[in-house]
């Protein structure tokens, strides 16, 4: 579903991703773990198409099409969802308005009929309830004044409502206490399915106790240095990044 070949990415003239290969087939959940500065966020921003992340070499195919020459909103319409590590505040725009605008923008690009207010509310209410998101929170401006947990739950709500083919979750566990982590993990697990791929980027193993991955990859210095099954995460937890780090990557 997502295939990355020999990807090289520069930010401000500095190479961060240095020949990364990765393939996530549909129906599978993969995790990427790596120390600070390994290039985890660079990878997610590059896949989502953010300005300033220059691909100097390599290729990414998503659902059989070249991903890299497309605008961010086209990638979104194609079913690529990025859960942000730091969700952005948009003052004055109610969360509900934002969601509806996004859902209908995506549906329009896919050639589907836009939801009317009734259909949309029905859709959102159900999903919001599962994530313990109140009507009051939906009325508040996007992420403004939200706690860390609320922001992440809001990301998962958007994911559920937008119903993407592929979920890219960037450090979704950061800033969450254990209760919030469980709510978020349940939300993610509910979206697992044979048609959907997921790539979970995280620093710590603890998220993977709740979202059990099919494959685990270790990212260091811009490359995948080790891949394995879920036990790799436990091994990493014991030995630390040092044993997988620069020596073996070099």
């Amino acid at each position: 579903m997502l295939k990355i070949e020999n990807l090289h990415v520069e930010v401000d003239g500095k190479e961060i991703i240095r020949g990364l290969d990765l393939e996530v087939p549909k129906g599978e959940v993969h995790a990427i773990m790596g120390p600070n500065g390994a290039g985890k966020s660079t990878l997610s921003y590059t896949l989502a198409g953010r300005d300033g992340y220059t691909v100097t070499d390599g290729k990414v195919t998503f659902r059989g099409r070249d991903l890299l020459d497309r605008e961010p909103e086209e990638r979104a319409a194609d079913g690529l969802f990025l859960g942000f590590q730091y969700p952005v505040e948009i003052p004055g725009v109610a969360t509900l308005t934002f969601l509806k605008t996004a859902v209908n923008a995506v549906r329009r690009q896919r050639g589907e009929a836009e939801y009317d207010a009734m259909q949309f509310m029905k859709l959102v209410r159900g999903k919001a309830k599962d994530l313990n998101i109140s009507d009051e929170m939906l009325k508040r401006p996007v992420n403004v004044g939200f706690s860390g947990g609320e922001k992440k739950r809001n990301e998962i709500l958007q994911m559920a409502v937008l119903d993407p083919a592929f979920c890219l979750l960037d450090e979704t566990d950061s800033g969450l206490d254990i209760d919030a982590l469980k709510v978020v993990a349940d939300g993610v697990n509910a979206l697992r399915g044979p048609e959907r791929g997921m790539l979970i980027i995280t620093h710590y193993q603890r998220l993977l106790d709740h979202i059990v991955p099919d494959r685990v990859h270790i990212l260091a210095e811009g490359r995948i240095v080790e891949s394995g099954d879920k036990d790799l995460a436990l091994e990493l937890e014991k030995k630390g990044y040092a044993s997988f780090g620069t020596d073996r990557a070099a």
Binding site: R50, D51, V88, I90, A102, A105, V106, Q158
Partner: peptide, 13 residues
């Protein structure tokens, strides 16, 4: 730029 990118990632032009 962060706000613009966030919206575009959700599918808005």
């Amino acid at each position: 730029d962060e706000q613009l990118f966030y919206c575009r990632q959700r599918g808005l032009s």
